[in-house]
Nucleic acid binder design. Structure first.
Lengths: 198, 198
DNA sequence: GGATGAAATTAACCTTTGTTAATACACGAA
DNA sequence: TTCGTGTATTAACAAAGGTTAATTTCATCC
C-alpha cells in the first residue's frame, strides 16, 4: 500500500467519512508513476487530462514565452496536487510544460476516468472539491503577493514560508516565479546580505 | 423570475441536465440583493460565507496593506461569481473587502446553506464545480500574466480583452490590479500614446 | 583531480518604476 | 457658476529592475 494512498484515504475519511475499505473503486483507477530528474511529465500540446498527487520530489510548471524564454508559473512538491489546467478546465492542449526537478514519484489519474468514477461514486466528490479549493487558495495567495508586495518582499515571504523549497530549487526558477530575472534576484540577495551586516 | 436565475438554470441544465422545474430547492435559498455605488458588501473581519452571482454592476475585492494603502486583487462584473475566499476556503475572517463600484444587483447564497442543499440535492454539485473551476481559471490567467508579461504588456492585454471594463473603472484600481502605482500607469498610457503618434 | 557545463554573481548601462509633490481635470453639490 | 473633492497627469529625483556580457562558483562526470 503506497503512502500516498494512505494519505488520500485519510483525507477522504476526514472530509466525507468514507472508510478506507470503501475506496477501492477510486484507487483502482490510479497509477503509480516515477519520473527521473528533468523528465517531462506533460509536454506542450499534450491533451491528456492528467491529475496527479506528488508523493516525493518537486515539479515545475512553466510556459515558453513568445520570445522563447521560459516562465515558471509554480512549483509543486510532496503531498500536493498537480494538474494540467488547460486540458482539465478548458479541454485544450496544454500550453504549459510540467517537468520533474528531482526524481519524482506520483500517483496519477486521468480526469476523464475520475469523472466516470465520480458518477457512480458521488461519495468521493468531496475530494475533487478539496483539490480545487486547494489550488484556488494557492493561486489567490500568489495573486495577493503580486499586488501587495515588491519583488524583494515576495522573496522574503518565500524564504520564511518555504525555506526548504528555496534551497532545493535553482534560483533562476524562483526568480521567474517571482516575476523577475535571475540577475535581479541575485541583487536582491546581495542587498539582503548587506543589510544584515549593517 | 430574475434574469440571473434563468442564466443559472440554463447553466445547470447544460452542465448536469437538471430541468429548471427541478431547481426550486436551490433557488429557494438564494436572496436578491442590491448595493449602491460604493457600498461595502463584505467588510474586513466578516465571517459570513457569502457567495454571489453578479447580475448587474462591478465589484472590487481589495485588501488594506500593512502601510495602510489599498491593493485591489480583482474586479468582478456581470455574470461572474464573487466570494469571500478567506471565509469559504479557510473559515477565517475575511481579510479582503468587497465593495460595489457601481450600483450592483446580485443573487447571493450562504455557502453553509449551499452545502446543506448539496447534501440533499447532489444533482446541483456540478454547479459548485463550475464556479470553482471558473475562479481557478481566472486566477491562473492572472498569475500567468504576472510571470510572463511586463506591466505595460499586462495593461495592453487588459485593454484588448476587457476594454469595456477598463473604461468603467477608475485607473487607480486598474493600476493596483496590475501591481503598479497610478503614476506608473499614467506614464505607460503616455508612452503608448506617444508611440501611436511616432 | 581536472575538465566541462550550468548556475550565480558582478559590472555597466539603460529603462522603468516608486515616491512625493505640484498641477490639471472632471464632476457633483451648493 | 463656483466650490470642493477625488482622480489623473506631470515633474524631479531616487531606487529598482532589465539586458548583455564577463567572471566566478559549483556540481558532476570522466
Amino acid at each position: 500500500m503506497s503512502a500516498s494512498i494512505t494519505t488520500l484515504q485519510q483525507l477522504l475519511f476526514d472530509l466525507a467519512g468514507v472508510l478506507p475499505a470503501d475506496t477501492a473503486p477510486l484507487f483502482a483507477m490510479t497509477r503509480q508513476r516515477k519520473l527521473e530528474a528533468n523528465e517531462t511529465y506533460i509536454r506542450e500540446g499534450d491533451t491528456e487530462r492528467r491529475l496527479a498527487f506528488i508523493e516525493q520530489g518537486i515539479m515545475r510548471a512553466y510556459i515558453i514565452k513568445h520570445n522563447g524564454d521560459e516562465a515558471t508559473l509554480f512549483l509543486r512538491w510532496e503531498k500536493q496536487f498537480i494538474a494540467s489546467h488547460d486540458t482539465i478546465i478548458h479541454r485544450k492542449p496544454s500550453r504549459f510544460i510540467y517537468r520533474a526537478l528531482e526524481p519524482v514519484s506520483l500517483m496519477e489519474i486521468d480526469y476523464d476516468v475520475l469523472e466516470e468514477v465520480l458518477k457512480t461514486h458521488p461519495e468521493y466528490e468531496p475530494l475533487r472539491n478539496f483539490f480545487l479549493m486547494r489550488m484556488l487558495s494557492e493561486s489567490l495567495n500568489i495573486m495577493e503577493a503580486f499586488v501587495t508586495l515588491s519583488p524583494e518582499e515576495r522573496y522574503r515571504n518565500l524564504l520564511t514560508e518555504r525555506f526548504d523549497l528555496v534551497n532545493r530549487v535553482p534560483d533562476k526558477y524562483i526568480a521567474s516565479m517571482l516575476g523577475i530575472t535571475p540577475v535581479s534576484l541575485s541583487r536582491i540577495r546581495k542587498r539582503m546580505l548587506d543589510k544584515g551586516k549593517g
